[in-house]
Write a protein that binds this DNA or RNA. Structure first.
Length: 272
DNA sequence: AACCATTCCAACCGCTCAGTG
DNA sequence: ACACTGAGCGGTTGGAATGGT
């Protein structure tokens, strides 16, 4: 048996919102607020819409101080840095970019940034991220570099990439840090002159042993410190961090200790 | 001008999680 | 402890807009 639907689909309107619906919703929320109950809101506001649809429309479009239009360079870099750090946690990323919504950032990532980072040719003026960074280490999360569907593009710098390991890292391996062992989909790619490490964006695996919020804060805090320590090169050369640098920095932080402690505890409980 | 391909983004869907009784 | 409910989230999709031939 599936989950009960949140509303009667046959009685609610779907598709694009009309200006009339927008103003109804906006006026109602301006007057009464959401009341913490989105399901009841459309009926009260006189809208033939699902509560979820109203919520989405409000959060992504109607709510005050929403920014639309082009993302700035700083916003782009923030998105890239956070994606490399925490993966596709769009709501957390959005919380770092005032006025931007998770949906906006997700769309921007999927339609523009991802392509830019992977060096897929486009009409845009900038040279590709990989082209700029041939002699440096990069950290990219794997959802957009999945090794099982990895297909080099015709782009020269991208073509040079070759998977050298497709095995999930063993949790008993002593050569890599505990922080990265927990990632299920870590893959190392090498070019002639540089190393690219791609690790899973699915951070939930890492956080099974801790409160998700604490873990997110841990990652964000670590990355903020990382960014502040590399401010100049970060701003000038896009978001580019070495694997070892990130690992070392995060492990050196207090939160790193917290994480390792949690991990030790988890390993204890997993023992037969 | 007409057609087709691609890009973009608003909106939807289905899932997880937290709160509540 | 359990079931139920609503909020919130991330992945996916439909279709409008745009670009190319």
């Amino acid at each position: 048996m599936g989950r009960a639907p949140c509303c009667d689909k046959s009685k609610v309107k779907k598709g694009p919102w009309s200006p009339e619906e927008d103003s109804k919703l906006k006026e109602f929320i301006d007057k009464y607020g959401t009341g913490g109950n989105w399901i009841a809101l459309p009926h009260k506001a006189g809208l033939k819409r699902c509560g979820k649809s109203c919520r989405l429309r409000w959060l992504n479009y109607l709510r005050p101080n929403i920014k639309h239009g082009e993302f700035s360079d700083v916003e782009e870099r923030t998105i890239c840095a956070l994606f490399a750090s925490i993966g596709s946690r769009w709501s957390i990323i959005a919380s770092q970019l005032p006025g931007r919504t998770d949906n906006d950032i997700k769309n921007y990532w999927n339609t523009k940034l991802k392509k830019k980072l992977l060096g897929i040719p486009s009409s845009q003026k900038k040279t590709s991220f990989l082209q700029q960074q041939q002699h440096q280490q990069l950290v990219l999360p794997s959802p957009y570099l999945p090794y099982n569907t990895f297909e080099p593009s015709s782009n020269l710098s991208y073509q040079a990439l070759q998977p050298i390991s497709q095995e999930p890292l063993s949790s008993s391996s002593s050569s890599s840090s505990p922080l990265f062992q927990a990632s299920e989909k870590q893959v190392k790619l090498e070019t002639g002159s540089s190393t690219v490490l791609a690790f899973g964006g699915e951070m939930q695996n890492w956080s099974t042993c801790s409160e998700q919020l604490d873990f997110s804060n841990f990652l964000l805090k670590g990355f903020e410190e990382q960014i502040s320590g590399m401010q100049n090169s970060f701003l000038e050369e896009f978001s580019c961090f070495g694997y070892d640098e990130i690992k070392q920095h995060l492990l050196n932080s207090n939160n790193g200790e917290f994480f390792l402690e949690e991990q030790r505890r988890q390993q204890e409980t997993e023992k037969p």
